Amino acid sequence: MSRRKSLATLTDGKYLAKCRQTTALNAGMNGHLSVWPEALMEVKGKEAFFYRDGKVVWSCSMLYAANQFDVTPIVKS
């Protein structure tokens, strides 16, 4: 019997989201071209919103974002 892999989750806040794809072509094939190579991401509840130049360029579920991108919290100093 195999074990289920647990899914990562994110709390509400702002993050830097980096694509795991190494090229724009690969990112585009996965539907992540508007985020590639990285974008500001804001999590609100179960949704994640990706921004460029202050405008939303893409959104997806928080679970998808948490498990398909490398995310780093943006900490205010």
Rank of each mutant, 00 (worst) to 15 (best):
M1F: 10
M1T: 11
M1K: 10
S2I: 10
S2D: 09
R3D: 15
R4C: 05
R4S: 12
R4L: 12
S6G: 10
A8L: 08
L10F: 08
D12G: 07
Y15N: 05
Y15V: 10
Y15E: 08
L16I: 15
C19G: 02
C19V: 01
R20I: 12
Q21G: 00
Q21N: 01
Q21S: 03
T22V: 11
A24L: 04
A24K: 11
A27D: 10
G28K: 00
M29I: 03
H32Q: 09
S34M: 06
W36D: 01
L40G: 00
L40K: 05
L40H: 05
M41P: 01
E42V: 03
E42S: 08
V43C: 09
K44M: 07
K44P: 01
K46G: 01
K46Q: 13
E47H: 12
E47N: 14
F49C: 07
F49E: 00
F50L: 04
Y51V: 08
Y51A: 13
R52W: 06
D53A: 06
D53H: 03
K55A: 14
K55Y: 02
K55E: 09
V56A: 08
W58E: 06
S59V: 05
M62P: 00
L63Y: 13
L63I: 14
A65W: 03
N67V: 09
Q68Y: 03
Q68H: 08
F69W: 06
D70C: 04
D70T: 06
T72Q: 08
P73K: 14
V75Y: 00
S77V: 12
